[in-house]
Design a protein around this nucleic acid. Structure first.
Lengths: 238, 238
DNA sequence: AAGGTGTAGATGTCTAGACAAATATTGAAC
DNA sequence: GTTCAATATTTGTCTAGACATCTACACCTT
């Protein structure tokens, strides 16, 4: 047996990946159909789909039912540090930031949220969930938890603003900075995949963050799920 | 049709995920076999495997051919900032850091490496590739590029040390800090999956970093692929 | 008690078919 | 030229079988 003979589906994925890296297929190009590719490689369509599954999980291609398989675009860069400003980062890359509100609710803090916000369990917090888009393309799903007593009337304000920073500054004279960020990678949950319009098992860059105000009070605990393939988070230390 | 009826394989994955979160299965437990589970859910074994594929990509379970499917362990936390010290982070969690050298070579810098190191293309650099382990478990594959002229004899030193920081300090009187880190998520490449002993399509936390010395010279360009499911990178700003 | 071997068990790969669901295309009617 | 319906195209889901490959275990021999 050859040294480390790989399964067919992995070899096919490697060849297609190389084709894309060599610009045989360019960003936006539609790849040949599954039927065409399985004939070209002389394999069963299921084996070819197994290979394509790898490439879509790598974020190299996007697959759309009924339409085809397309080579996907470069990642969006977001600097992380003490001041994380997504809207500014997007604008810096000529992208139009938008959000769609998914949910605004007043809920009692569960143990995890309470711990992160340094409040007692069951104290009311405002949960603000939203889908963030860049030029109409979904890039993240965020859940932010704010202590209700620090921000009276926050729920109604959330619907009128499109920037957390601006809202807090204008309505509560509150500036905030990032105290900490925890990052890991996961496979997307089904509901996130739906919101982010990505395959059910794509990689998610999971960020848990703590923001504090000028007097070092924890004012926001945030959980953001980025399309792991479309985003690049940068930590520039100075 | 029911609102958002999900495919069977996604429903099954959700149920198993919930079982694990509810500690029906605990870390280290072996799950029932594929055959048992497919019978329990009344589906084809391939459909069940599709569900299991999701869970393994989420890092919730690890699958081992011939042995079974096991519930996996908690992530390893590594702080990012100006001083990234993996060995210290592992020791802080009572884990024994080790590495296995994969490759040490003197190579001409390609365009990307040259750009990152701020040297001319084709200038010789030392490439040092290694697999990092914690208590014998692989956690990352790293490629570090060092300008050869700054570190004469680096290749032979690499084989004698098990800490980059210690090597640079003791052999070259060089202290270094992290200038920047870029993070994104990918699906593992086949060779990384092999080294990291993880499934071929697991999520990788990809880190590209620049380290500088006391006089702000770029001394290392590093590309590290972490097991995205086993790691949690934390940015604590101060 | 230790080592070797064969078998059983468990996952992995590949093939194949059928049908569903989403989108694209085409042609007819206005 | 536009609209709409029908059809074709393309990917998604589920089923099914066969065989490969790896590990665990039981049993036999020394």
């Amino acid at each position: 047996m050859h040294q480390d003979a790989l399964p067919l589906y992995i070899q096919i994925a490697a060849e297609l990946r190389q084709n894309i890296q060599d610009a045989v297929f360019k960003i936006g190009d539609r790849l040949p159909t599954e039927t065409e590719l399985s004939e070209r490689f002389g394999v069963n369509r299921h084996t070819l789909r197994q290979a394509m599954r790898i490439l879509r999980q790598e974020g190299i291609v996007g697959v759309e039912r009924g339409r085809g398989t397309f080579v996907t675009a470069a990642p969006i860069v977001v600097p992380l540090g003490t001041r994380v400003r997504y809207n500014e980062a997007l604008k810096a890359q000529s992208l139009q930031p938008q959000w769609e509100v998914l949910q605004i609710a007043s809920i009692p803090a569960d143990a995890k949220v309470a711990q992160q916000l340094q409040i007692a369990t069951d104290v009311p917090v405002v949960l603000f969930e939203r889908l963030s888009l860049a030029d109409g393309v979904p890039i993240s799903v965020s859940s932010s938890y704010f202590p209700s007593d620090l921000f009276p009337g926050l729920r109604s304000h959330c619907e009128q603003y499109h920037s957390i920073s601006k809202l807090l500054r204008e309505q509560y004279d509150c500036d905030h900075i990032r105290q900490s960020t925890r990052l890991s990678a996961r496979v997307a949950r089904p509901q996130d995949a739906r919101h982010l319009r990505m395959p059910a098992t794509s990689p998610i860059l999971l960020s848990e963050s703590i923001n504090i105000n000028q007097t070092d009070e924890v004012i926001e605990y945030g959980v953001t799920r980025f399309r792991g393939d479309r985003m690049e988070l940068v930590i520039a230390n100075s």
